[in-house]
Structures are given as structure tokens and as C-alpha cells.
Nucleic acid binder design. Structure first.
Lengths: 231, 231
DNA sequence: ATAATAGTGTCTCTTAGACAATATTTC
DNA sequence: GAAATATTGTCTAAGAGACACTATTAT
């Protein structure tokens, strides 16, 4: 292996959630150069004896205090432009994590610097390194996953109403969906959501049934975002 | 950056093509341990000043003599289990490359060891490292891409008939498609294929129109593989 | 009763899929 | 003409989308 200068391997983590009807991402304000005072995605070096997703769970816990028990976690893609970090050659394996709405990270811990930011307020200039690209790729991935995978439920609490599920689609896709058709679609798909039998009453209007996430790994047929405009 | 032992970063490349009506992958017989005489995917170390896809193109050219001008190249995913290579800790960024049928790699060159293998003849035990997993993931990715991306044309020569395009789908998906419906679908999708005006005559039967790949990056609506069975 | 939200019915239009029919070539 | 393959026509069924309608709660 001589002659091949080693490269630092890191993980970067795009943690998405929905709060106050907006898509949010977890980011940390940098305290030192490079990119002082800019925002960065949580992440860090992969340890010598650690699998990639193990590193993701460890960093997430260390840096943000997020409990990473049973969350949506998938590898996004790897970013390796030679000068993406001015200090040294690093290759970063980016991951996507999706959570239900969480309280703000605990103050007074290592996680204090981490905060939720509305994604649409993060102009590319506010982010360090190539993190704007990574974030954009993550949002696009989440958008695409909603079409045919049970990702929306990962944005919701354990039990949720169909309207809550629909709001996730609407917020991530930035368009409204027909409540009636959406309802039929997701309740009709086999094992996509499971009726708990309970109901929720939050305000005016007829109380909605509460559902849990079903065991299906795919939604078939998918809910397509567009009507061909993207062609 | 002290305290973080560096990790070797490599690229592994799954080069797929269709020859003789079967899906083939380019693989190299290993000459030394570990995994002597097993088959390995082409690949190698990422150089210090090289982007990831630059490394892919360089390795592909060096190891297989494949001309990597205008081919389908996409990043697949990154494999980083701590002991995936018994010699040292390596993280490999796997890529998918799709080509039209090529001649056998040139004998007498560095590429001599590389050969095309029918994918369905490569039992996991014949492959080195975690390359069986990578190959399986690559085939699954290609399968999925065919549904909504113009990947099939990458398996075909510059100009192709609709029947050739359909054969790609049939071979990768392992099922037959209705020629009439497939024809309507792909010729009807905007900018998916472009009629050259020419025709090809290869044997008996009415000569088929020749098409080129269109500029569309998406096929909408997609051609779905299954009818919900995968749910 | 009215407002509000949940959930169902129904209609139309598009598309997939099956398969018949036609077109154009070689033998 | 017979065989083979390409391409178009036609029918049916499923699903998407629009929207009317019913159900169940709070005020």
C-alpha cells in the first residue's frame, strides 16, 4: 500500500425533520476556521474499527444528543472533491437521517451548538464546505423516497393521522395534495399504514383515526410527485 | 487531525454490458493473496489530487482498456466494513458503469486479466472481498434505473432499434415485455428516443426504425417492473 | 345551526396490458 | 405465399385527480 497517501474519511449527516409545518435540518455553527461562523452538518471522522453507519450513530449522539434508536438512516452518497476541505484531503460519506419532531438539543452539552434550521432559510452561502450541495442532494433524495418508500412515517410520531402523513408530503414536495385521494391511496396500499383503532382529537372537526407505520418497504403503485413536468 | 488513523480510499467499478442476450460484468482474476484466483471488480486507490469519478475513469482505462468517453457512470454506494479487506482498513466508493457491447479486452496489455463474465454465473463464492454484495447492489440499481431513467440506451450502440432497447429491459429484469406496448411507451415518451429516419435490416422480418437516445433525463410515467408483487 | 376536519362516492381521463390486425421484409 | 419481425388499433381494467357528499366533532 506504499505510495498511496491515505485520505481522511468522515461522515456527514443530514438530519431532517418537520417542525411548525416546515422542513428543518440540524446544523452546527462553526467556532473556528475554516468557515468560521458558518453552519455545518454534524459529522466527524470514521474510527479505525467502526462501520460507516456505526460512525453516523456515534457522531449523531455525541454532537446532537439525538437518540438514534430506531430512525430512518440511509447512506446518501460520497463527496470526494480534492479540495472540499482546505485543511486536508477528506472523503465524506454523507448520510440521511429522518426523525419525528424533537425538542431543541440539550443546552450545556456537547450538542449545544446544534440547532434546527428551516431548510429554505439556508442559502448556500451560509453553509461551510460543500454542505449546501450535500443538503440539496439529501432533500432531493427524501423527496424521491416519499414517492415509493414509507419514509413519511419516519417524520411522524409513533402514531399519526393520515392528515399528518399528508402534511409531510406537502411540506417536502412544496405542493398540496388532494386529501380525499391521498387518504384512499395510503390506507389502501397493503401494509403501508396500520389502523390502531384509536382516534385523536386535537381541535375542531371530526377526530381522525390514528395509524402506525406498516411493515411494507415499498409503496406500490408509487405516489408520483409530478405529472410529467420534470421531463 | 492527529489521532485519527487514516483510511485507504479506493474505488470499485461494476461495469455492466449485455452480450449474447445476457447481462455481463467485467472482472479480473486475482493473481495474489488475499483471495487468490478469485474474481474481483476492477478498481484501485484514489490518488491524492483526484476526484472520485476521475479515479474511476483512470482505473477503468488502466485496468481494462475500456474507452471511457461518454458512458453511463454513476456512484453506487460506499462500502466500509472494518474488515472488508484483510490487509488494511479500506473504504471503497463503488461505481456503476454501463457500456454497449465491447470486444474482449486487449490481450498483452494491462487489461489482459479483465474479462466479461455472465452475471448469473458468478456465485458469491467466486468473488473476492465484498464484491458479490457490490455486484448485487449494482444490478439492483441498474434494474431500478431502467424504470424511470434512460439507462437502457447506454447498453445499446449509438443507434438502436426499439426491439434492442426492449431486450435490455428483458435481460436485466429477467422477464418478457409486450413488444407492442413497449414500443408505444418509449416512442411516446417525450425526448426519450429520437427517430433517425434510417432503418436497420438484420434478418427476416420488417426492418426496424433506428433511434438515438433522446435528451430526456427521466421517463415519465415510469415503466414499472412489477405489478405490486414486491410489496 | 355553523364551522371545521375526516372520510366515502362517483365521475372522468390516462395509462397499462392483452391481443388482434396490419406492414414490410426474407426465403 | 409463408414466416418473421415491426408497428398500429382496439378493448378492458386499474388508478389518478377532481370534486360532491356524508360523518363526527367543537362552539
Amino acid at each position: 500500500m506504499v505510495g498511496f497517501p491515505p485520505i481522511y474519511v468522515t461522515v456527514d449527516i443530514v438530519v431532517l425533520t418537520v417542525r411548525c409545518d416546515r422542513l428543518h435540518v440540524l446544523a452546527i455553527r462553526r467556532g473556528k476556521p475554516p468557515y468560521v461562523r458558518r453552519l455545518a452538518l454534524p459529522g466527524g471522522f470514521v474510527h479505525q474499527d467502526e462501520d460507516l453507519d456505526t460512525a453516523v450513530r456515534r457522531e449523531l449522539n455525541e454532537e446532537t444528543g439525538v437518540d438514534v434508536g430506531d430512525v430512518w438512516l440511509e447512506q446518501l452518497r460520497t463527496y470526494g472533491a480534492p479540495r472540499r476541505d482546505p485543511r486536508a484531503r477528506t472523503v465524506s460519506v454523507a448520510h440521511l437521517v429522518v426523525l419525528a419532531d424533537q425538542p431543541e438539543p440539550e443546552p450545556g452539552t456537547d450538542a449545544a451548538a446544534a440547532r434546527w434550521w428551516p431548510v429554505d432559510e439556508l442559502s448556500p452561502r451560509r453553509l461551510a464546505f460543500d454542505h449546501a450541495t450535500i443538503l440539496a442532494d439529501a432533500v432531493e433524495r427524501a423527496s424521491a423516497r416519499l414517492e415509493y418508500a414509507p419514509l413519511a412515517a419516519a417524520f411522524c410520531p409513533e402514531e399519526f393521522t393520515i392528515a399528518e402523513l399528508r402534511r409531510v408530503y406537502e411540506i417536502v414536495w412544496g405542493r398540496s395534495l388532494e386529501p380525499a385521494n391521498f387518504h384512499r391511496k395510503v390506507t389502501g396500499a397493503r401494509d403501508f399504514v396500520i389502523d390502531t383503532g384509536r382516534r385523536e382529537q386535537r381541535g375542531s372537526g371530526r377526530p381522525a383515526r390514528l395509524y402506525r407505520r406498516g411493515g411494507a418497504t415499498r409503496l406500490h403503485p408509487p405516489i408520483l410527485r409530478d405529472t410529467g413536468l420534470a421531463n
